[in-house]
Structures are given as C-alpha cells and as structure tokens.
Design a protein around this nucleic acid. Structure first.
Lengths: 338, 338
DNA sequence: AGGCGAGTCTACAACGTTGTAGGATGAGCG
DNA sequence: CGCTCATCCTACAACGTTGTAGACTCGCCT
C-alpha cells in the first residue's frame, strides 16, 4: 500500500540506500540526484515506516507518561504541559492511567506494557517509599510527584515543604492564627500530604503559633467531595479557625463550598489558600489564592532529563533530584489588609 | 541487551519459530516442549520486541487521539474515558494536542506524524464543515465532536440539538420564559454552538415562547473567562432574564460567578443549566444542573468503531454516524418547584 | 506392505529501514 | 602518466518477528 524506500528508489533510478541517505541528510549527494529523489518522494507520497526505523535504531521517539487519572485536573494540566514539552523535543507521548492503584503501578513497571516507548515518566500515587526498589528497572525512568524520595532514579518534584510553608505564612501575614488544614493523611511523613503538613508546621513554628492537631482535617483522597466532607467534619467538631489551607485546589474548592453553605464569609471569616494553581480557581467565587507549583518547569525538566537518560551513556550519572520553583498567588480568598 | 527469540530458542533447544509459536498460542506443540520454552522465557526475562512485531504485522496496537487541549476539562475527561475504553480492547493511546488550531489540525491529517498508530480519533475544533474533504485520508479515522457533519468518515457525536432542547425545556418546566444563552457563535449553523442554539430555539418554539436574539450572549472561546465576560455583557445590556443556558459547564460556571457578584440568586432569580457534566459542577456553589452527554458511550463507541475500521475489510462499509444518549441532570442551580 | 493424515517441528524469506564496506568516478598533484 | 584522495553511490547484512512450505514421525487404514 504505502510507498517504501524501494518504490522511491525505483522511481528515482537510484539505490535504496541513496534514498535513505537523502532522507537522513547525508552530506555527499549530488544536487541533481537529491532533487530527483525528492521529487520521487513527493510524487509517491512516501513517508518512512516508523516501525522499521524503530527496529533498526532501537528508538521509538515515544515516551510513556503514567498518571493516576486525567480526570483529576492536576494531572490533566500536567499531561498538557508534558505533551507540549515533549513536542518541543520531537517526542510523542503515550499515556497510561494507573488509577492511583499500587498494584497497577507495579504492573506497569514490571510488565512489558510500555515496550513501545523509549522511557517513562512515572507519577505514582499508590506506591510508597518502601516500594522504591521497584523503580530499579532496566529502562529510562524519571519519577514525578512526592510519593517516593531517595529512589534509584532521577526525580522531579515540587518544593512541597517550602511552598506549603509559604502558603501558611501568607495566611499568617494576613493576621490569621487559627489555620485549619484540609487534606492530611494520617501518619504520613513522605507524600504530598506529609510534606505539606510539615511546611505548615514549620510556618507556625516560625510565627510562634502552637500546632493544634484538632485543626487538621484528614481524608484519604483529594477529590472535591473529600474537601467538602472533611470541612463538614471540621465544622461539626466545633473547632474554631479563621483560615484554611487546602492541600490542593480541588480540596480547597470543595471545602469553600461547605464553608459558604455554613454561612462563613471568605475571606472575612475564613481566609483560604489552596495548592496547584488550577485554572478553575481563577473563576471560582471567590477566586482562590494558591501555590503555583511550577508545572511547566516540572514538565520541561522531566522531559529533558528523561531524554538525557535515553540517549546518554548508561548510568554513570547518579540519580538526581530536581525541585521546581513555586509562587504564592494571592486572589480574593485571602485578600485582606496584610 | 534484551533477550530475543533467538536467545530463548537456544536456551530451550528448539527453533526460533517454535518459540514464536509458543508465544502465539499455536495449537500443535507437545506439552513438554511448551514447558521447556516457557521456562527459558521466564528465565531470560524475554519479552517480544514490539517494533519488530509491528514491522511484520503492520499493526502497532496504538491509536492516536487528537484533541485541542487536555487542560480543557471536557477533553481531559474525554481522554480519560477513551484511554479506559482502549485499554479494555488491548490498545494504547498516544495523545496529540492541536490547540484547536485549524492549521495544526490539518497538519496532523496530512503529515506522517501519527505513523506510529493504527488509526486516529480526531476531535477538531478549528476546522469547519468546508474542511470535510481533508478527512479523506488513507488511514482509519474516526471523527469526534460537532464541527463537521456528513464527512467521509465514521463520526461519533453527542445529541446536541435534542439535548440542548431538553436543557431548555427543563428550564421552561421550571416556569422560566426569559432564558439567556451563554456561548453562541455568531452565524454558526453546524458546531456545538450552532446545534445547541438550534435545540434552544426548538424548545422555545414548542413552548410558544418567541425567540429574542438579545438574550443570546456570543463568545469565541468556551473558557471560564469567556463565560464571565459574556455574562457581564448581558447584564450591562440591561436585557431581562430569569434563566440561563450555558453552552457548556465551564461557561456556565464562569457566568454564575458574575451573576452572583451582581447579586442575583441562583436559582431563585436566575435558574442555570450547563452542558457536559463536568465533575466540577458537582461541587460548585450552587451545584450545577447540566446535560450528561454520554461521555463513556462516546468513548466506547469511538474506540470500537475505530478498531473495526482498523481490522475490518476496506471501506465496503459506508461512513456511519453515532449519537450518544444524553441525560438531563438536575442539581441546585435549577432546583425549583416544577 | 504401502499410503495417508494428523501432529510436531524447522528452515527460509520477508516486513522496511540503516550501518558497513567497498566500488566507481574524477580532480589534484608529483 | 600514475597515484592519492575526496566525493558519490551501491550491495549486502542486520534489527526481531511471523507466514509459508515442507520435513519428519507416528498410528491407522486399506
């Protein structure tokens, strides 16, 4: 069906290899030969067979991206950034959804499901630090997210502790001292929740505010519904607070809705800040203050580092850790006289 | 590096082809031979080279999905559904973002960028019905969305007219007669905006309500910001209305925020319904009534049809059109005594 | 005894590409 | 005139897999 090098070679009256050379910009080709080949190519509508090329070269030009779910806005926006970053480097992206399920995540690492790709950007959610050794695989792998630290691979992550500290400090700078947290994971030390809670505590400490555990609302997942139910529980517990730090925007938005239903004014009664800088927070009522975690920087770094691992010499470079730069973005939900 | 059929064959003391036969479940193999081969396979950690397999078979097991942007929630959720549907059928999905740009969309159709895939699910935004002939490509292609109708390929779409009519009828059933629309595209006949506006008009007609053009708010894009500015313009125009139909949820949410800022109560002063059934609308304040467009059905149909085209005999089946089933979902934003 | 068919396995070619080695041509130089 | 050397091109092999054709064994039927 589709034209091959052979067809083009026949049409142009040259050898197969010469056509191949033209395509690959080999230097020593006479101008008229080149011209003739080019004409034959466009006449036959030839385009190279990528499977064959992959077989020869061992490279596919495709990278894998494994995320929990695209319907979680953060991962959708991350995927967007990553696809764009990959495109800039001439790579395509094949997306795999793990559902945040540990078994599914391990399966992706061990089975040949991503055979078609040159390497993998991996954002686990179900795995924990004890699973780090599973990352010891024999293909290029770059880890994303905050579930595992000190693993055997390159790792690109947010500045979780510092940015959570900045978020909390921001609320403190607005005169708030009773700051509720929505989204804690009981007993977690590593992981977005654990790290961000640490940042929260650091900020309190710096300001000389004692840490009150009853202000921390725990939840397993970070969906809108969880933000809502966690906030409901906080309200029912009767604990007082004049500010809230949502561990991500989605939680914050769900929680805000419950606060408003309960008659609390934002930011007057409760100042709110989230985390992630989702587009959504720009148009909520009120607009949501947040931490911009440097998504484009994360995407760009991750793709660049993966590409280095793919083409670079084997493993003489030890695993590296990258932290993206964050920014505190003040919007209406925390806009108060500082 | 990685083990090949040859290595396994050597280890098991059989021919390459026998190993291949074991892998492909060929019937006539002695039990002990099979056993020996299996052992060699797991011992060497063999897994087939997919590039080679693709080269031989002409199939990659990967389909392409071209959408405007994953940061648009609708497309993120669509991609989610499609990846899941593809997984059920043993396919992987490679995602390409067009940015909704016509030139970029045409380029994807004409260039060999998606060579690595067996077929393409294509959701254009910039192209219009006049570009339909560009869909006449020589690889399996299934069209999604409402930009082009009557094209030369299979097409999976929402019931735009009918569901917009149902949305409007829903507002009418709540006693509303002055129904504003947010998201019209000036002069458009085909396309989500044009079709949904038609459904809106049909519902009015059925109810004997005259169509008032000044109730239609036009906008080019369907982001949150556009919903907000369009609603601002409507309010400034001084036109009166007691309900609003947002052509999608994002627009509706943006518009709701402006309405609330202007002091209009929802649903008391203005009843609101959107379109798309985004997760977000389940946790907005108030929760957003909407049309569930049957996303899973769309995804499932699209993947199934594409797979049929990929493996099926060539083109003896004429292009087919599929319309997913929709549902009106009533939430707080339109919850009024019927 | 000869022949047949089912079961089991193998050798070889082919998919379309690129790397390697080397052949042919002509210019430059002693 | 003969040599070298750069330029331009070609033949062949190889990447790892699967389809095709056929070899060989065995039991069973005529």
């Amino acid at each position: 069906m589709a034209a091959t090098l052979k067809d083009v070679a026949l049409a142009a009256g040259v050898s197969i290899k010469t056509v191949s050379n033209v395509i690959n910009d080999y230097q020593h080709i006479r101008a008229d030969t080149k011209q003739r080949v080019m004409e034959a190519i466009s006449e036959l509508g030839y385009s190279p067979n990528l499977s064959a090329r992959s077989l020869r070269s061992g490279k596919t030009g495709v990278i894998g991206l494994a995320v929990p779910e695209l319907s979680l806005s953060y991962f959708a926006e991350l995927a967007d950034s990553i696809i764009k970053a990959a495109e800039r480097r001439g790579l395509k992206v094949l997306i795999e959804q793990t559902g945040g399920d540990r078994a599914h995540e391990l399966e992706i690492l061990s089975s040949p499901r991503l055979q078609m790709t040159d390497g993998l950007l991996f954002s686990p959610l179900g795995m924990s630090n004890e699973d780090a050794h599973h990352l010891n695989v024999n293909f290029p792998l770059v880890l994303l997210g905050e579930r595992i630290f000190g693993g055997p691979t390159d790792h690109v992550t947010m500045s979780n502790v510092e940015s959570a500290r900045a978020a909390t400090a921001h609320l403190i700078s607005k005169g708030r001292r009773r700051i509720a947290v929505v989204g804690g994971h009981e007993g977690e030390v590593i992981g977005s929740a654990g790290l961000r809670l640490r940042g929260y505590q650091q900020a309190l400490e710096e300001a000389g505010i004692p840490f009150d555990p009853s202000l921390v609302g725990y939840t397993t997942f970070w969906h809108r519904a969880n933000g809502a139910t966690t906030m409901k529980a906080l309200l029912e517990s009767g604990v007082e607070f004049d500010a809230m730090f949502g561990m991500n925007d989605t939680l914050a938005l769900g929680a805000m809705r419950v606060l408003q239903e309960a008659g609390r004014r934002i930011p007057d009664d409760v100042a709110v800040i989230g985390f992630d800088d989702l587009d959504e927070g720009r148009y909520s009522l009120p607009t949501l203050s947040t931490i911009a975690p440097g998504r484009d920087e994360i995407a760009d770094t991750a793709v660049r580092v993966l590409q280095e691992r793919i083409s670079g010499p084997d493993s003489d470079v030890p695993p590296r850790e990258f932290e993206a730069h964050f920014q505190v973005i003040e919007r209406e939900s925390s806009a108060l006289p500082g």
